[in-house]
């Protein structure tokens, strides 16, 4: 993975596979405290305590084609290589929250990358469920919530190309705004 947004995409796909109906992504950047945290929270089926204990192991997976699953372990190693950590909490029937903490200024911290493309891609993965993306940068923040967008669109599909273009521009512009042009 070359950028953190690709990890977000990968972890959010896990939420979708776990039958979530709401996936919430939050990225918090605090350059004064020198912290970057990325949280992917879902209301999917959750993991048992046993599975949670071994989920960081690359030889743990729910896929049936092959006994390897790299997603969580790659995300964890990206966080750890900056001196950060990966936290996972989960309960059966409630959902799962994955939080990665990074040292913001660490030389090995991957760039956040293209979050607009990641958000559009997960919407396309399963348009019928809802997604929230919040990004905070030193106190400024913005949120995009597909429930609000669907309320305006009504019978029009959220995956309509014109809607996706609007959404992409919206995210890019909002990120630029909260970072004061420093993106």
């Amino acid at each position: 993975m070359k950028e953190l947004s690709l990890h977000v995409l990968d972890i959010a796909q896990n939420s979708i596979t776990a039958d979530a109906t709401l996936v919430e992504i939050e990225i918090v950047e605090d350059t004064k405290k020198d912290i970057l945290t990325i949280t992917v929270k879902d209301n999917g089926k959750g993991m048992s305590e046993d599975f949670l204990k071994k989920v960081r192991d690359p030889f743990t997976t729910t896929r049936t084609t092959r006994p390897v699953g790299m997603g969580i372990s790659l995300f964890e190693s990206a966080a750890k290589s900056t001196g950060g950590q990966l936290l996972i909490s989960s309960a059966l029937g409630v959902g799962t929250t994955v939080t990665a903490e990074f040292v913001h200024s660490h030389i090995d911290r991957q760039p956040i990358g293209n979050m607009a493309d990641t958000f559009l891609t997960i919407i396309n993965t399963k348009p019928e469920i809802d997604y929230v993306y919040t990004h905070k940068f030193n106190g400024a923040e913005f949120t995009v919530d597909t429930r609000e967008i669907k309320n305006v669109l009504m019978e029009v599909d959220i995956t309509t190309p014109d809607v996706l273009v609007w959404l992409k521009e919206n995210i890019e512009q909002s990120l630029n705004d909260i970072m004061g042009g420093k993106q």
Binding site: V152, W166, N170
Partner: peptide
């Protein structure tokens, strides 16, 4: 944030 009015125009 761009305006939701724009989105409504796209919808129509």
């Amino acid at each position: 944030m761009k305006s939701l009015a724009e989105l409504e125009a796209i919808r129509n």
